[in-house]
Design a protein around this nucleic acid. Sequence first.
RNA 1: CGGGAUGUGGCCCAGCUUGGUAGGGCACUGCGUUCGGGACGCAGGAGUCGCGCGUUCAAAUCGCGCCAUCCCGACCA
Length: 575
Amino acid sequence: MRYSEMFLPTIREIPSDAEVISHQLMIRAGMIRKLTSGIYSYLPLGYRVIQKLEQIIREEMNKAGAQEVHLPMVQPVELWQESGRWVHYGKELLRFHDRHDHEYCLGPTHEEVITSLVRNDIKTYRQLPRNLYQIQTKFRDEVRPRFGVMRCREFGMKDAYSFDVDEEAAEKSYEKMFEAYNNIFRRCGLKFRPVEADSGSIGGKYSHEFMVMADSGEDAMVFCEKCSYAANLEKAEVACPEKKIIFEDDWLPLEEINTPNARSIEEVSVFLKVSPQDIVKTLIFNADGKPYAVLIRGDHEVNEIKVKNYIGASDLELASDEMIQKVTGSPRGFAGPVNINIPVLVDYSVIDMVNFVTGANKEDYHFLNVNIGRDFKVEAFTDLRIVTAGDSCPRCAQSVKIARGIEVGHVFKLGTKYSKSMRAFYLDKDGQEKIMIMGCYGIGIGRTVAAGIEQNYDDQGIIWPMPLAPYHVIITPVNVNEKTVMDAAENLYDALMKTGIEAIFDDRDERAGVKFKDADLIGIPIRVTIGPKNLSQGNIELKIRKTGESILCKIEGVVETLQSMIASELKTDTP
RNA sequence: CGGGAUGUGGCCCAGCUUGGUAGGGCACUGCGUUCGGGACGCAGGAGUCGCGCGUUCAAAUCGCGCCAUCCCGACCA
C-alpha cells in the first residue's frame, strides 16, 4: 500500500495516559485509539496484525480438528439462569433490557450459548467428539481496565469448546488443544511457556495457562530449569518437607512477654531481637463466615487460593477486626494458636520449628517458646504458602525460579459443570443417557498482540516478528523528487505486489529522517532504502529492523532475496 | 469500593500560588528554501480552559458539588 493513501496516524510523543510499553507503542504506531475506558478501536495497521494472528490461530485450530462457528454476543437471561451464573458472575457481566423489558447480557464468555447449541443438535455418541471455536468480541465489565488492550473491557477472544463422551476422550481433546496452542504461539515467534494453573471452583485436576515471558507481565510463574515443572505462582506447590525428629527435651517453657505496640512481624522481630524465621505468623481468615487460623513462618506469605481450596470455601477473606476480636479476644496483631477455639491450619514451613514466637491472643503480648503438640492442637499440616525463588521444585527438588509473564491463553477442563446444569446429554451405545464432558480453551487476541510488543521493541519502536508483522517490507525512497529514485521505487513496489510480498511504499514527500523514524516505530521487519548514491551503482540497501544490520545489494534479484528472507522468518515447521 | 494524580485547539504541556482580553511546541493549510535519521522561514486556520453552581465589577485561576481519565490496592470464569 502507498503510505500517502494510508490511514496511519503516528504520534511522536508518548500519550499521557499510557503507562506500559505496548500501550504506548500501539497508540504511537497508529494501531489503536481509545474510545473510552477499556474500549479501543483498531486502526488499519493494528487490525492487520490482529488478522495475522487470527489466521495462524484458524490454521492451527482447523488442523487440530476444531470447526469455526460464530455465536451471538447478546445473550438472554434464561441461559445464564440455567447455568447459575446470572447470580454468580457478578458485576463483570454487563446486563441490560431490550424494548420489551427482557433481560440480556453481553457475553463475557460463551459456555452457555455453546452448550445450548450442542445439546439441541448432538444426541448420540456417534456425533462425538466435537470441538467448536469462534473468534469473537467479549465484554467483561472489568473493575479497573488498564494497560491498554492488555486488560480491557471489550476484547477479541478465540474461544473453543470440546464435547466428549467420557473423561478419557476429554483428556485427548485437551491434549490436542494443548499442542495446538504450543504451535500457535511458537508460530507467532513469541517466547512463552505453558504453566499449570489453578482450576478454581470448577474443579478438574488442572488447567494450563500459556504465558508470554515479559517483565511487565501481570502474572508471576514458577519454573524449574531441571525438570519441566512450571506453574502459575498462585498454583505452584511447595513439597512437604521431610519431617525432622523433634526432641521434646529441647522444648523450653512457654513464656508470655509484653510487646507493646508490636503487631507486625517486623515490629515483633525488632522488639524481641529475633529473626522473622523464628516467628510464626497467625492469620485469621473468614471462610464463608467461619473463622480459621492459618499458621505460617514469619518470612513467608500465605497463598489465599491454597487456603480457599483446602477448606473448600466459596468465599475467603482476611477476617475483619470484629471477627478477630471475637475469636482471639484481642485486637489485630496479637493472634496466636495457643488457647484458640477455631481450626488451626499449619503450613509446612512451621512443621520443623521449635520454641517459636506467636501472638498471645492478648493485646500487647506474645508468647515465646511455643511448640506444636504441647501448646496447641493442629487441624492439618498442609501447603498454604506462596512459593519463593529458591524453594525446591515439587517434582525434582532442584531450586525453582520465578519469572513474570502475560497470560495469553488458557486451556481448561470443564468436566460436567455446564453440561450437567444445562442438560447436555447424549445416548451411548447401550442407549443410556450420559452427560457430555466439556473442555474450554481461550486465547486473548489483542492481549497476544500486546504481549508480542512487550517482547519485541526498542527505543525506536516496535520490532515485529515476521509472522505478526502488518507488512513484511517498507520501501523508502529517500527523495520523492528525484525521478530515478522514484522510478526504481515504483518498479520495486510493482514487483513486490506481483510476488505477493506485503509492502508499504513510503511515497510521501517527507524528509528521509521522518520516514526512517516512522518505519522503525511501526516495526516493519525489512526496510528497503533507495537513495541516489547507491542507486547510481545499481545498489539498494536492506535494513533489518531486528538486528539493525544494513545489507547493500544489487537491485536485480532483490525480489528473490526478499522472498527468501521472509520465507525463512515465516517457517512454520516445528523443531 | 479504598488511596493518589490529572482534566487548557487533534497530540504533549505552560499559565492557576498573587483573579483583569488564553499561550508555546508538535500536527494541520498556503508560499518559498531544504532533502539519507523526526529541517527552516513567512503567512494562516483551529480552544464553551471537563460539567454545574457559587463568590466577585471581573474566574482557566478562588469555593462547593459532580463527571471523566490514569496509577496503586481490593477484585479477576
